[in-house]
Design a protein around this nucleic acid. Structure first.
Lengths: 128, 128
DNA sequence: CGTTGACCTGGACCGCGCTCCAGGTCCTAC
DNA sequence: GTAGGACCTGGAGCGCGGTCCAGGTCAACG
C-alpha cells in the first residue's frame, strides 16, 4: 500500500484515468475508437506509460476544443504511422482545427455580447 | 404567388424557419419543449409574429452559446410569466450563463494555445 | 486458501438535440 | 374535382460521446 504500483512500469487503467482526469470507461472507449493503443501485462491488463499519458492529454485537449472523435482518429492514425512524411498532414489538420476553434470563440463572443445586452436591458427595466 | 403570404398577419412555419435560419422541425421541437408558443390559424397552422421571430433569435443565441434546452425552458418560463417579479431571476439566469460562456471561452483559449504549441513543434520538426 | 477489489470483454443503454417518417388535413391552382 | 404542396400530429430514429452492466479473470492480503 505504501508504494502501490510504482514499481511496475506503467500505470493501471484506474491510475491513468485518475492522473488524466478522465473516466476509465473513456480510456477504454478511446482505445476501441483507435485513438489510443496500450501495452498489456501478460494477463491482459492495460499499462500506461508516461508517453501514453502525454498522448491522452493531447486527446483531451482536442476533445475540449470540440474536435469530433472521427477527426481525432484521423490525427491518431497520422501520428501512429510514425512516418515523418505525415507531419505536413498533421500540421494541416491541427491548423484547420485551430481555425475552427478561433471561429467558435468569435461566435461565442458575438453571442455573449447579445446576452450582455439582454442583461443590461433587464437591469434597466427593473430599475424602472 | 407574387405576395405569397404577406397579407396574412404572421409567417408560416416554413417562412419563419427560413427567416430565423433554423429548420421547421427545430421550431416544432422548441414548441414541444415549451420554449415557444405560437398562435394558430383556425385550421391549426402555426403563425409567427415579428415578436415570435425576435424570441426565436434569443433562443438561437442561447443555444449557440451552449445553453441546454432544459435551462432555456426555465428562462422561457420566466419570460412567459410576464411578471416583473421574475426579472431578477431572468437577470440571474443570464448572468450565470454569461459566466459559463466566459469560462468556456477561456478554456478554449487555453487549449488553443496548446494546439498552437503542437503546430509549432511539428513545424520545427519538419524544418529541422 | 479464500476474500476482496481492480481489471477484462462484448454489448446494451443513456441524454442530448434534433431529424425523419407515416398518415392525414388543408389550401390553392388548374 | 383533382393535383400539388405546405402544413398537422405522434412517435420512431439518429449521431454523438460516453456510461453502465453482466459475467468472468486476476492479484494481493491475511
Amino acid at each position: 500500500m505504501s508504494q502501490p504500483t510504482a514499481a511496475r512500469d506503467g500505470l493501471s487503467v484506474g491510475e491513468a484515468a485518475r492522473e488524466a482526469g478522465v473516466s476509465i470507461d473513456t480510456l477504454r472507449y478511446y482505445e476501441r475508437e483507435h485513438l489510443l493503443r496500450t501495452e498489456r501485462t501478460p494477463s491482459g491488463h492495460r499499462r500506461y506509460s508516461p508517453g501514453d499519458l502525454e498522448w491522452i492529454a493531447v486527446l483531451t485537449c482536442l476533445r475540449e476544443t470540440g474536435m469530433p472523435i472521427r477527426r481525432m482518429r484521423e490525427f491518431a492514425t497520422l501520428v501512429g504511422e510514425d512516418d515523418d512524411a505525415t507531419i505536413g498532414a498533421r500540421i494541416d489538420l491541427l491548423a484547420e482545427h485551430r481555425e475552427d476553434v478561433l471561429r467558435r470563440i468569435r461566435e461565442l463572443e458575438a453571442n455573449l455580447a447579445h446576452v450582455e445586452g439582454k442583461i443590461a436591458y433587464y437591469r434597466g427595466r427593473s430599475a424602472g
